[in-house]
Design a protein around this nucleic acid. Structure first.
Lengths: 344, 344
DNA sequence: CTGAAAGCGCTTACAG
DNA sequence: CTGAAAGCGCTTACAG
């Protein structure tokens, strides 16, 4: 391996001057700098980061602890966002995945600490409570998409209530009043938050909630065995004397099941009935016909904001809730014509 | 930061002995080892990896170049597989994402090379040709899910033809003869391979292909604007004098559209008609009702095998094609009753 | 089984 | 603007 001394010899200068060139020290004559640059090119020299780290006592590495974010589709955007910001700061990410199959989490953390990471970002696959390893406190740390009740680290979470209010208001603005809300898996942290956001928006619009069916009991993404629940629910509400003109689904996978249930009963989403949802899980949301109007989880932003906080750009304390983005496609445009027919 | 010397002082021995304990050198008396271990615990000592790397000239780091694998749902399994194997070998992964938003790929590679990675694994988001940076040849490298026609690196790809043959044979074994194949986006490398696998299995079963519709022109996953194509196709085939009893979809997102198109026309998947597909893209494949029978992409295996090759466990040269796994759910069980009705 | 010396490839702090 | 010395925290190679 070619070292700084080889370059110095080639450039006929001291190795200290080479070091200055590498580190963009302005105190180098242009002519000298050019000679050094040429030598670097000629020899294919690359500074040895281990040596720089050891001497400077700064690793330039941020640890990204991924609690299954590469398993859950789209949560990977947290990683992308974090990486973008780290990049801008000249830091690199070292990622460890905490899968079921991976070794003891302790070892993964040890590895990061031995590499002298300057900070830790712990990201989880979906919005939930997480267990923070004790050692995380030995270095600056932040949380994204997960929270801990023991620790009080800067934490960045999706604003579930805002999302529910915003999508509900969109449906209300379209003239809908008979809106059915089918909640996500009730074990999710998001479940009560989305439900209360929905209720608040309805209340503020002066719409009575007694016509609204909010089955906390619909099992969603985790189990996966509860498909038939959505069919049953749709069957039920379509028989109401006044069927809903809009259906708000607690997550996109439930919206997909809702599309299917409606289609097989001859109802046309976006025409006979409006449908909207949460998460923006692709390719579901983009490949459904009509395109699914849904609130997109702020994964990218959680990653960015958490990394900015970690690198000292900002100073948030405690929990910061980040807004979802409305992805307006066609499914929310249903005018409830079919429902009107039924009544008539 | 506490160093090896602090530990030596605490354990009343030389720092060389501490080094031996850290490195599991058997030539240390049990009593001495215990004293050193105690000192390590007491001081919370962690070896400085930069120092070890510099002195030993071995970084223990493998570079994982992710060409959008965290963007594409499930391709993240390549990373998981690679990480599992690296783990077993005591290596750690340093991942760089090549997103649209990330800096010049050159810089990402420079960073890895400066960290003295011992090898590089280049993984792409879907099966396609990739551009390999020149510098990748300066260190042992392998490819997963992507291939390069310039370089001749060990390459691990999904066996598209095997997958198509296997799923087609499953449908044939169920008694289906009138099988429609709706191809994926024709620009995909997988498109002609899946099509030819399908044709071969049909030919081998002695089924004439003239009743089989293979629209190379169905645009799938990339565009996303071609939803209506599937509707049109389904409309067309259902009007055939002898409608198909099974529909094989080139990818799961097309299967989802097929389910919807069939449902809105009163056809019941898994009963009136069989449906099968490729990729096993969750949650689509698990949340569709009935569950979608599909060939799962060998992402995890590609990651594992590529890493094993990189670490010298195996010695494959050139391209190795890895089999898909059959995910047998309920959608392929359709008996074509509706089709029979139509005929009768 | 244990230790003293040398040195990995850089940056720091100081001198000129 | 340039350089000689010291040292970051370990492992290597050798000696005892």
């Amino acid at each position: 391996m070619v070292s700084i001394k080889d370059v110095a010899w080639e450039a006929k200068t001291s190795f200290k001057t080479v070091s200055r060139v590498i580190n963009d020290d302005p105190a180098v004559r242009d002519e000298t700098r050019a000679r050094v640059q040429a030598a670097i090119e000629a020899l294919g020299y690359r500074p040895n980061s281990a040596a720089r780290i050891m001497r400077s006592q700064r690793s330039g590495v941020i640890g990204f602890i991924s609690d299954r974010v590469t398993t859950q589709p789209h949560a990977g955007d947290i990683l992308r966002g974090a990486q973008q910001v780290a990049d801008q700061h000249g830091k690199v990410l070292m990622t460890v995945n905490l899968d079921d199959e991976s070794r003891y989490p302790q070892r993964a953390l040890d590895m990061l600490l031995e590499r002298r990471v300057e900070g830790l970002l712990y990201a989880s696959d979906y919005h939930r409570e997480v267990d923070i390893p004790e050692e995380m406190h030995s270095v600056p740390s932040v949380l994204a998409n997960g929270f801990s009740t023991q620790a009080s680290l800067p934490t960045f979470l999706p604003d579930e209530s805002q999302a529910a209010q915003e999508i509900t208001r969109l449906l209300l603005a379209q003239g809908h009043r008979r809106i059915v809300y089918i909640g996500p898996n009730r074990r999710l942290v998001a479940a009560p938050l989305r439900l209360s956001g929905f209720r608040q928006a309805m209340r503020e619009a002066g719409v009575a909630l007694d016509t609204t069916w909010t089955p906390d009991g619909v099992e969603g993404p985790l189990g996966g065995e509860e498909h038939s629940r959505v069919e049953t629910i749709i069957d039920g509400v379509l028989r109401w004397p006044e069927p809903p003109t809009a259906i708000l689904c607690g997550q996109d996978s439930i919206a997909m099941q809702t599309y299917l249930a409606l289609a097989s009963r001859g109802w046309c989403v976006g025409h006979d009935v409006a449908v909207a949802s949460f998460d923006d899980q692709r390719p579901i949301s983009t490949f459904l016909t009509p395109g699914l109007t849904t609130m997109a989880l702020p994964h990218l932003e959680m990653g960015r904001r958490a990394m900015r906080r970690l690198l000292g750009d900002t100073g948030e304390q405690g929990i910061t809730r980040l807004p979802f983005a409305l992805m307006e496609r066609e499914s929310h445009r249903g005018v409830g014509e079919r429902a009107v027919d039924t009544i008539g």
